[in-house]
Amino acid sequence: MNSSTNNHSGVSLQVCGLRKSFDGQAVLRGIDFEVQPGEIFVIMGPSGSGKSVLLKQLIGLEPPDAGEILINGESIQSPEIASKYRLAMVFQSGALLNSLTVGENVGLYLSEHRLKPPEEIARIVAEMLEDVGLKGTEDKMPSELSGGMKKRVAIARALVIEPQLILYDEPTSELDPLSSVVIGEEILHLQQRIHVTSLVVTHDRDLAFGVAGRMAVINEGRILTIGTPDEVKRYNDPLVQNFLHADFKREP
């Protein structure tokens, strides 16, 4: 793979003044935050608040209108980033390649970049699938999997990259509570094992408070507050409190 010295440690991520609009409609209106190497940073916010758009900019899929994104101090737009740092993203839908089997999906990065011989790839794929609790599903097609299984395959596919920064887009949406817990544990486990920097975008409060080292609450393209889970819980802003404590009110 690559021989840089920081091979197995997370990278830092800095975001300054990030703005993005589509057809004149502002989606991100100045986002600033910083994630330390090896930290799990959670961004919470309601649907449509611009979380997925933010992640797409962070991994360089879309250029921002304004602002800067720095990985270990280097702009994400610079051409060397891709070869220097290993970044991975787990998409909200999984985004598995539907024409490939589960095994081929998970091994795609290795096989496409000719990083390992086929037997070695098969071994790694089996190991990664076992890690996410999907042992022996190599030959299934993505269309045969449930939403939760797809997401776990997507995580396995990201892990194969041995990422230094991993972005999760709503990893537990559409999942049952048990699978959500498994995913949450996987996120923690990974951070402990390879010290990857993790950025988790979610509106799942249990997941957020379960894994976050620090967290931010975002609404309508602005960050309302950043801090440790306790600080955010105590933050006295009606928008934040509403979001954190929204619940059914059942008439007795």
């Binding site: 991975a88 993203m89 998409f91 839908s93 598995l96 390649l97």
Partner: peptide, 17 residues
């Protein structure tokens, strides 16, 4: 087109493919 819509192409790009 369906790979585009279902973000498979984005996934390829994040894998540097």
């Amino acid at each position: 087109g369906s790979m585009r819509v279902y973000q498979e192409i984005d996934a390829l790009r994040t894998m540097n493919i």
